[in-house]
């Protein structure tokens, strides 16, 4: 598992430090957008980044709208990472927002401030982490998945994008990195793909998870396209790399490889 997903790590800019035998987390201030579709779920990328972030020294704020904690706990245990222990040690913060947008809940009307409150909670946690640790830590904020925020905002993409923009400001203000999962195909029916395009402009790493272009195969589960625009923020170097992989999902992880290198 450790060596197998190196391609994805490399594309994301996660580098293994051999001397300390620990990997780094996502580059700070990066914004990763994962686009998947019904045929091929991109959840494994989320799990992968989650594991990488926790195995480095980063803290993770995980906003889940689609699954309860137990779901992630089970999966990450297979990947060799104990979420419950990380949660207890104060490095993993889980927001269970499955009920976000349910009108009879205490969350209240989303239009008049539900998302604002919610954003406030996230920023509070970020501030707490920053103030509690002496040396500046990496914080990864993960959102699984964005389409459900839209549902909670009663279908108003604009309002949910406002929320996302506010989360995005945390990247420049506190040096957090942001990981968002969204579905590409839910916007396909509309006359234009504008919502997803707006998010693509925001992200500096874009990962597209698609079924195999040439059809189904037993040993290839799909293909990944990773576009890394590089960090124009810090060193002002812009690498702009596009990479294509195939992947295979396994019980305890995923396997990425260049097309044609595995039979």
């Amino acid at each position: 598992m450790e060596g197998s997903s190196n391609l994805l790590d490399e594309a994301l800019g996660i580098f293994h430090d051999i001397s300390s035998s620990s990997s780094s987390s996502l580059p700070s201030r990066s914004c990763v957008l994962i686009e998947d579709c019904v045929e091929t779920s991109g959840a494994f990328v989320i799990h992968h980044i989650l594991k990488r972030s926790l195995s480095s020294s980063a803290s993770v704020i995980f906003v889940s709208l689609s699954h309860p904690f137990s779901h992630y706990d089970r999966i990450l245990r297979k990947l060799g990472c104990n979420l419950a222990a990380h949660r207890d040690s104060g490095r993993f913060f889980f927001f269970d927002m499955l009920m976000l947008g349910c009108t009879d809940q205490s969350v209240g009307n989303i239009h008049t401030g539900g998302l604002i409150e919610f954003y406030g909670k996230i920023q509070k946690v970020v501030e707490d982490i920053i103030s509690s640790s002496e040396n500046s830590k990496n914080i990864t904020i993960m959102l699984d998945d964005f389409s459900l925020i839209e549902v909670a905002a009663k279908g108003s993409f604009n309002h949910s994008l406002d929320f996302l923009r506010y989360c995005y400001t945390l990247t420049s203000e506190f040096g957090c990195s942001l990981v968002i999962l969204n579905h590409e195909d839910i916007y396909l029916g509309e006359e234009s793909l504008t919502p997803i395009v707006q998010m693509e402009y925001l992200a500096n790493i874009l990962i597209k998870v698609e079924p195999l272009a040439t059809g189904l195969a037993t040993d290839v589960h799909g293909q990944l396209t990773v576009l890394n625009k590089g960090m124009i923020d810090k060193s002002r170097s812009s690498t702009n790399k596009v990479q294509n992989f195939h992947f295979k999902l396994k019980e305890n992880g995923s396997n990425c490889f260049y097309p044609g290198t595995r039979a």
Partner: peptide
């Protein structure tokens, strides 16, 4: 003005 509102309510530092 979200942050401003939240700050006034003391929800964020």
């Amino acid at each position: 003005g979200w942050k401003h509102r939240l700050k006034e309510n003391g929800r964020i530092g």
